[in-house]
Each structure stands twice: as C-alpha cells, then as structure tokens.
Amino acid sequence: MGAGKEEIRDFLNRVADALDREAWDEFLSMCAPEFEYRVTAHSYELDEDMIWLIHNLDGLRHLFEVLPEQLGRKGTRMLRHVSIVAIEPGETDGRMIATSKVIAVRTSPEGVSELFAAGRYIDVVDAAGAAPRLIRRETRLDTRELGIGSHVPI
C-alpha cells in the first residue's frame, strides 16, 4: 500500500525542512533517480513562460558541490514556508501531484529577514514505494525580481 495524503504532506514538509537546513544529501535522498527540478516564471514583458533553472539529480549534486566555493555571505539563510493546497492522484499509478504555496524568506547574517520569493511548488511524488520520493518539482515563481539572485534552490 502506497503513501496516503497525510504521509505525503509530512514528506513535503520534511523536504522543505531539509532545504532550509541546507542538508543537501538528505534532500537528494528524498528524490527519485529520475528527479527533475526546475524554477519557472511567466514574463509579462515577453508574455512567455520562462525556465530559470533546470537540473536533474546529477546537476543538483554538482550545484551543491560547488556551493561552498560560491561567493556569498556566510550565515545567509533561506526559510521556505510551505502551505500545501492539494494532493491528488496523478495520471500514472502510484504517483501523486501536490500543489503548495511557498514563501521563501532570506535572512542575512545580521539577522535581517526579507521576502525573497513567493510562488508555488508543483510536485510529482512517487507514493508507491516504501517511502515517498520526489520525481519532479517545479517551483513556479510569482516573484520575478530576486535581487542579486540565489545559488540555492528555492
């Protein structure tokens, strides 16, 4: 028997928590081998959908590997407040689609917090196995001005 909605809800909260704690290996362990992560936004300037980041599991591993060398301020943190809106069966057996609202708050080393981004997660979850795993995450941003940007997935 696969994971139910409550189990998936708990799973998605743990995924967000792993990202918040920058526990990258833990996050990757929650992803299926075919995992794809993308950040998207709609440009009203171009009237087009845009992809701002797209990675498979290897791409994410590489991203996390170079993060310690990436220029930034030590102590900067991002906290993702996730509110799950719906968890529904996908078209494929054993897959569930979860839609969540997400607000990412970035806090500087001095402790100043500011809204970094608002949007939605559209997640495809493998709910058939012993434990749920992410097959796909699209972070669909409403926010299109990200200041200096980010090296860390939202």
């Binding site: 950040v39 992809i51 701002w52 980041l53 797209i54 170079v66 990436q70 220029l71 930034g72 990200l146 200041g147 200096i148 940007g149 980010s150 090296h151 997935p153």
Partner: peptide
C-alpha cells in the same frame, strides 16, 4: 531551445553560477 536555455542559465540566469556573484560584488 531547452539546451540553449540551460546554457544561458548556467552563467547568466538569476540562479546561475556567475550572475549572483557579479551582483554581489557590485553591491
């Protein structure tokens, strides 16, 4: 187009390797 987008984003997107570093330096 997908490959082109990846190659653009690698260095020049808002979540790329280079652009946030350049903007950080300017600030």
């Amino acid at each position: 187009r997908m490959i082109r987008i990846r190659q653009h984003n690698e260095f020049w997107g808002p979540m790329s390797h280079n652009l946030p570093e350049d903007l950080f330096a300017a600030e």
